[in-house]
């Protein structure tokens, strides 16, 4: 059982609004593989239209997860790529859906293995609630309160992006 909770139009409006909020002269943006990287791509595309200079990187946090004991490592190769020096930069960390906060915790850990930025701000397309760690986004495109037994996913279909909610076994 799945239902679309945000359609293509709503998602795009949210992305437009996020791009406008982020906008400044120079932006360092890191997307979390895979959904966060796609959101970062979408934001980058919008910002570049505004002639903003965007430095992009991607993070794969697989090896920074804290749940290796329960799942096997994922062999899909989505290497982290941070082609700029992080030191003393103001970083935007981008993800698609913010839930427990564990991914963000792992991402922060990995970023600090690469360098010491001046600041990190978090932007997420969708905050679905249910935090298990004291982590909050600085910029939220869409907000929605989902139950623990529900999964909320950003679907990046070439025909159009939308957010889907489905019932999962708790």
């Amino acid at each position: 059982m799945s239902k679309v909770i945000f359609d293509n139009l709503t998602v795009n409006q949210a992305l437009d609004s996020m791009a406008n909020s982020i906008s400044s002269s120079e932006i360092y943006m890191i997307g979390i593989q895979r959904g966060g990287a796609r959101v970062a791509d979408a934001l980058q595309h919008r910002l570049q239209k505004q002639k903003v200079s965007v430095q992009r990187g991607n993070l794969d946090i697989s090896f920074y997860r804290d749940d290796l004991d329960t799942i096997a490592p994922n062999p899909e190769v989505r290497p982290s790529k941070l082609p700029f020096d992080l030191s003393d930069k103001n970083i935007w960390l981008i993800d698609d859906v913010l839930y427990t906060g564990r991914t963000i915790r792992a991402a922060l850990g990995e970023i600090f293995d690469y360098g010491r930025p001046a600041s990190i701000k978090l932007a997420v397309l969708l905050d679905r609630g249910g935090r298990e760690l004291p982590i909050a986004a600085d910029l939220v495109g869409l907000a929605h309160q989902a139950k623990p037994e529900q999964s909320v996913k950003l679907i990046t279909d070439p025909e159009g992006w939308f957010v889907e909610q489905r019932q999962v076994k708790s």
Partner: peptide, 11 residues
């Protein structure tokens, strides 16, 4: 050291 596998992807 990992578990039984299972779900791909993040939280």
């Amino acid at each position: 050291c990992g578990g039984d596998g299972g779900d791909d992807g993040k939280e």
